Amino acid sequence: MIIIDGSEGEGGGQVVRNACALSLVTGQPFRIVNIRGGREKPGLMRQHVTAIEAACTLGNAECEGLAVGASEIAFRPGRVAPREYRFSVGTAGSTGLVLQTILPPLMLADGPSRIVLEGGTHNMLAPPFDFIERSFLPIVNRMGPHVEARLARHGFYPRGGGRIEVEITPAPLSPIDCLSRGASLHRAATALFAALPFEIAQRELSAARKLLNWPEAVFAVRELPAEQGPGNILLLEAGFEHVTEIVSGFGKLGVTAETVAKTAASRMKGYLASDAFAGPYLADQLLLPFALAGGGSFTTVKPSQHALTAADIIERFLGRRCVFEQVESGAHLMTVR
């Protein structure tokens, strides 16, 4: 059994999610101690429990010690059964992070699956649905499987209530090289809001416009039905031939609209100033499918602690190393060895 100290490296929930996914793919059981030991509130949160329960359901697995707040679990995988599943986080916990746990084994299963996930779709502690749909899944689909995701309803923190639907047609993962973004195709800046004053979205776009040298026509406000709020997110999108980068800023109490926009715009400017294929969040998401493919490469900005921790967990299960090396341009080249 693989033993993992959940307080090492990034010390968050990603360790749990990646371990469950890799266990279901490889058939190797694991035990995690000190779960989320690097967090202010250690132990499993509701969304982590949902992710593990989902992994147990579709993988006919057993998990000892599973409970909100638990600091140690033992996970024993079974055989993955592709079919239709529905899971509810029950709070604004991220549906995207639950999907991150169950997608790899279902992409490699022996039949198609349909997944319905209910909970948070736009959560400040996780990539929003738009990122999963337009940044992450197009790369995965180039590797062999076909995954389509649809947003049925937005779910913001703290209310939740969102819904995403995912269709998965499995296939072996093939290595690909993602070294060039290709030509620039489009830009978009969209401020979404629900059950909040219209001026919040206007102020976000005004602040972003001052920092980004983008055409006036690409800035837009979108009001969602009040029952899907309260909530607010600023989405900045840069589309290229081979990749789309999406940077988000979430409105929250005590943070001005201008601060939300400036933080997001600065991150987007940093990405555009480099020649890296993947931004930091996309790099985190790509490590697992690239490692499961047994090869391939992509360039990214400086790897995050998230990415380095994921690489360590991957090596424990697969015996493959995700190596980051800085190249002449300043970007970092990730290769699987």
Rank of each mutant, 00 (worst) to 15 (best):
I2M: 07
I4K: 04
D5W: 09
G6L: 06
E8N: 10
G13D: 01
V16I: 15
A21N: 03
L24C: 02
V25G: 06
Q28N: 12
V33Y: 12
R36W: 06
R36L: 06
R36T: 08
G38V: 09
R39H: 09
E40T: 15
P42Y: 06
M45T: 14
A51K: 03
A54L: 01
C56A: 11
C56S: 03
L58V: 10
S71E: 15
S71T: 15
E72K: 13
I73N: 01
A74D: 09
P77V: 05
P77R: 02
V80Y: 05
Y85N: 01
R86Q: 13
S88P: 08
G90V: 10
T91V: 04
A92M: 09
S94I: 08
L99W: 03
I102L: 01
P104N: 07
P105D: 04
G120S: 02
T121D: 08
N123F: 15
L125T: 11
P127Q: 07
E133V: 09
E133Y: 09
E133N: 13
R142Y: 02
R142V: 05
R142T: 11
H146E: 09
R150T: 14
A152W: 12
A152G: 15
R159S: 10
G160E: 06
I164N: 06
E165N: 12
E167W: 14
P170I: 11
A183W: 06
S184G: 11
L185K: 14
H186N: 11
A191Q: 02
F193V: 03
F193G: 08
P197W: 04
F198H: 14
E199Q: 12
Q202A: 06
R203E: 11
R203K: 12
A208E: 04
A208I: 02
R209L: 07
P215W: 01
E216Y: 07
A220E: 12
V221R: 14
P225G: 03
Q228S: 07
G231V: 08
G231E: 03
L235M: 13
E237F: 05
F240M: 02
E241Q: 14
V243I: 13
V247Q: 08
S248H: 15
K252E: 10
L253R: 13
T256W: 05
R267S: 08
G270N: 13
Y281G: 10
A283W: 04
Q285E: 13
L288I: 13
F290R: 05
G294P: 02
Q305D: 13
A307D: 02
D312R: 15
F317Q: 02
F317G: 00
L318N: 00
G319M: 02
R320S: 07
R320F: 02
C322M: 07
Q326E: 10
Q326S: 06
E328G: 13
L333C: 04
